[in-house]
Design a binder for these strands. Structure first.
Lengths: 210, 210
DNA sequence: TCGTCATATGACTCTATAGTCACATTGTAA
DNA sequence: TTACAATGTGACTATAGAGTCATATGACGA
């Protein structure tokens, strides 16, 4: 957690530091992200940085936390707004939402994604220990409720299925990224098709509606 | 690619260097893996290392390549041996195979996995540009053939579905890892149950057999 | 035995990092 | 205006990394 001095800073300065840090992590990944570069770009002294944060891990942890909160709030709102919808329609709303979030917060989602996947053990604990757990829990509850209402078949291993759902959501994003599709320039129709395919897959699997 | 001098080395020395390097990458990830530590542990001089390899990236690229080849050979054999089986049975064989490979080559698969997920752009090119592509292609062909034989529904976007399949396979492994289940100590029954769940999911999706 | 060529060596250079600290500046309250 | 605490500063330390290079070793053919 940042120190009090950081939160005493004018909002504008706080945001500038966080934005620049986010950009740095986005461009270089956690390991290669450089505090020296961050303070230089942000136009603050090295010493000041260490008056705001404990260190690199503290800074990153905070950015990750903010990102997770944003994402969770976003998803929860969608969930609320569509709580009356049948499962698969709600799922559609959520999938579209996760893409929309990514479109609106490209660096934020990329950094989280990137670090969910960091090979560094420490980082895995910071992020994977949180982001994936949160996503899995979210999905687990989601699945449990749907199963209770008989909207989906009773799932044998709900923890695993929830995790699979997390992975698939990510996979969707990864796929788009691998296609070198510029998120911001991607039209809604392409999004819709992707989501449609995904939904059919989730709903009927590979065998298809009988 | 390693230099000729590396391949001129006695097999035992080659293996020792590669094993120790693999261990280093496994323990520290690419970024933090240290050439200095590797040469120290392997009992060779820094200079010698640079007579064998162009540098760190070269070393890692080679290890990754060997790992991919092993994995591909393994999967191809399974594919061959079960080529007469119906799609979903073959899928079962492949999924079990990927877990078995992981069980037999824990470090190898962990390193590949870890780096498929590295946040570092260079690494993503080395690995993701290869491993994931290879896995996706493999799955794409696999799906195309099954679709041609009407064993699965015609897939709208085969590239994406192939990628989703890649992700799910990984997800299975990730899940096991996250449960802190010691791969080597895991009994075959637990494996079977995991695979069973996965297969139902792939086959029927969440809606279940109608 | 000698000469030569591939290979082995490790001290060294160069670069970059995270983090520190003695001192400077600023804002505010008396 | 003064005093004092909070905040800002950047040169500096300590550390560690990748990669180099002049020199040493050893194997092998003549």
């Amino acid at each position: 957690m940042p120190k009090e001095t950081f939160f005493n800073l004018p909002q504008e300065k706080q945001h500038r530091i966080l934005d620049i840090s986010l950009e740095e992590f986005y461009n270089h990944g956690y390991e290669k992200a450089s505090i020296s570069r961050i303070v230089e770009t942000a136009g603050i002294a090295k010493g000041s940085f260490y008056q705001y944060f404990e260190g690199k891990e503290d800074l990153f942890g905070f950015i990750a936390q903010v990102a997770r909160e944003k994402q969770l709030v976003y998803a929860s709102k969608l969930l609320e707004s569509g709580s009356d919808l049948p499962f698969f329609q709600l799922l559609e709303v959520l999938l579209k939402g996760s893409l929309a979030f990514m479109k609106e917060n490209p660096r934020l989602s990329a950094v989280i994604e990137g670090f969910m996947k960091s090979s560094d053990a420490t980082l895995k604990e910071i992020i994977m220990g949180e982001s994936i757990k949160i996503s899995d829990q979210f999905n687990q509850q989601f699945l449990a409720e749907a199963a209770a209402k008989n909207e989906i078949r009773p799932v044998l291993n709900i923890a695993f299925t929830a995790h699979a759902l997390t992975s698939l959501s990510q996979s969707m994003v990864e796929y788009l990224r691998s296609q070198n599709i510029e998120m911001s320039s991607m039209d809604d129709q392409a999004f819709d098709e992707m989501v449609k395919e995904m939904l059919i897959f989730l709903k009927y699997g590979l065998s298809g509606p009988v």
